[in-house]
């Protein structure tokens, strides 16, 4: 079994923290994991992504080959289209519909979402809305993690366990909000 994920977003959006949920859960389930990250200059509001590779065999390359990814998970709609070369034609694309407009030539949102929806296996999720429903707009990334949990070869309980662990020190309320957001993401993706 081999499962490659590209996580995409803008520096500061928490791409690494979503990546960590999947990576840590995979390790807990005994899989091998490689997570290649972007540090440095691009983290200042530029396009960032991680290459996350899960497998039950040795993983050689830190980088995902062209057409190798089974999932592109994007925190932001424009960024979801940047890594299509790496997405397998049978692979899934899941993106938040909430734009990060820190550039002047950001495309028209309706056109952009329309284009994403023409892709064969794409899902656009209003992560912010679902996060607010769960209790905090800041839990949007957990909504996306929840949506991804329908596809990654991991038990959702393992991922939930990890979410519980990372938010524990912030109190029960924060844990519950994030788990709820995860759950809503899970229910609102196919």
């Amino acid at each position: 079994m081999k499962y490659d994920v590209i996580l995409a977003g803008v520096g500061g959006q928490g791409v690494l923290s979503v990546s960590a949920i999947i990576a840590s859960s995979a390790m807990e389930e005994g899989l091998q994991v490689k997570q290649s990250e972007v540090h440095g200059m691009s983290q200042r509001g530029g396009a960032v992504y991680t290459n996350l590779r899960l497998s039950d065999e040795t993983i050689y390359s830190d980088l995902i080959p062209i057409g190798g990814a089974s999932l592109v998970l994007s925190m932001e709609p424009l960024e979801s289209l940047r890594y299509l070369d790496y997405l397998n034609p049978e692979g899934q694309l899941i993106t938040s519909s909430n734009p990060e407009r820190n550039i002047d030539d950001y495309p028209d949102l309706d056109t952009l979402i329309g284009k994403i929806n023409t892709l064969p296996h794409a899902q656009v999720i209003d992560a912010r809305k679902l996060a607010l429903e769960a209790g905090s707009g800041r839990a949007a990334n957990m909504v996306l993690a929840g949506a991804a949990s329908n596809y990654v070869p991991l038990k959702s309980e393992t991922m939930e366990g990890y979410i519980r662990k990372i938010f524990q020190r912030k109190g029960d309320k924060v844990v519950e909000t994030n788990l709820k957001a995860f759950q809503l993401g899970r229910e609102n993706s196919k």
Binding site: L81, R82, L87, P89, I103, K115, P120
Partner: peptide, 11 residues
């Protein structure tokens, strides 16, 4: 080969 791109320039 990977997935096809929608015909739209990416900023």
């Amino acid at each position: 080969t990977g997935s096809p791109h929608p015909d739209m320039p990416l900023s």
